[in-house]
């Protein structure tokens, strides 16, 4: 008697389409050489320093202050970008007005505009002699060369993330659900608060996390407007650049490791939010 052939678990499901070996191999090779190996170099470097070394760098007052500025201001900026981003996304997907498509395209400007260009433009706008800076100066507010300037640049850079993660979900809202709420006697405000907004929260949080992560790592659009005063308006990425130019690779790697750890935690948080949302409500 012969046993029926048992289905073997394959690494890949059989397919008639050719080219898997070639394209998969090429993909892995490129990925390893360009992304994985260089990132591994960072891991090697930071393991050389060890946890105690990283802690030592992080507790250096100047580094600690830079990390605080980067993460603190980015948090506020991401919050602001999320609020305004939600309004922009709502207006763009719900209301019809002349020029809507142009406004929609403008939202992507920070994605398309090179960061250095955005940086010098923001710096010259908000400098005490600049178009906006002069007005703010009259009110006794100095934006450029202070954490406020960093905040402005981070809102600029984070806004598209906040808009584009929420916008498709607003567009997809089933109008029938809002009508159902109305037929059950709910006022418009109640419909918005109880029916429309809750399902959007995961997307808003995702947009917030993306804007936050981007703000923490951002360099080009910030350094011109920040003024880069140590202990006041110096951001962590700039400190990495400074340490590298002093050939202090260990110090630079330590700061980078801290930043990477936090942005990976942010990414993890996003994935958890989405997994939870999918499990609970059947959508992201």
């Amino acid at each position: 008697m012969v046993d029926a052939p048992r289905p073997k678990r394959h690494f890949r499901r059989p397919s008639v389409i050719p080219g898997f070996g070639l394209t998969f191999g090429y993909t892995l090779t490129c990925l390893s050489l360009i992304v994985l190996l260089p990132l591994a170099a960072l891991v090697v470097k930071s393991s050389e320093i060890g946890l105690s070394g990283i802690v030592a760098v992080a507790t250096d007052p100047r580094v600690a202050s830079a990390l605080r500025v980067s993460f603190g201001v980015s948090l506020l900026a991401a919050l602001t970008a999320s609020v305004f981003g939600f309004i922009v996304a709502w207006v763009l997907s719900r209301y019809r007005f002349p020029g809507r498509k142009i406004v929609d395209a403008v939202v992507d400007l920070p994605f398309a505009l090179p960061t250095a260009v955005a940086g010098i433009a923001l710096a010259s706008l908000y400098a005490p002699t600049g178009l906006v800076g002069a007005q703010l100066a009259k009110l006794g507010i100095q934006a450029a060369y202070t954490p406020l300037g960093i905040f402005i640049a981070m809102v600029f850079i984070g806004l598209p993330f906040a808009v584009r993660t929420v916008q498709p979900l607003i567009t997809e809202i089933d109008k029938e659900v809002e009508e159902a709420s109305a037929t059950l006697g709910a006022t418009r405000r109640m419909t918005l608060v109880r029916v429309v907004l809750p399902p959007l929260i995961p997307a808003v949080l995702t947009g917030f996390a993306l804007a936050f992560a981007r703000g923490v790592g951002e360099y080009g659009s910030i350094i011109f407007i920040a003024g880069n005063l140590p202990y006041v308006s110096e951001i962590a990425p700039l400190l990495i650049v400074i340490k590298l130019s002093e050939f202090d690779y260990a110090g630079a790697a330590a700061i980078a490791t801290i930043m990477l750890a936090i942005s990976f935690l942010t990414l993890l948080a996003i994935n958890l939010i989405q997994a939870w949302s999918r499990r609970r409500f059947g959508y992201v």
Binding site: K45, T115, V216, G217, A252, A256, M259
Partner: peptide
Amino acid sequence: SVSPVVSGMIYVLIFGSQGL
């Protein structure tokens, strides 16, 4: 999800004069 500065830095860590 990697800061641009870190993206450049990893190559310095490998190919720089003090690199791997």
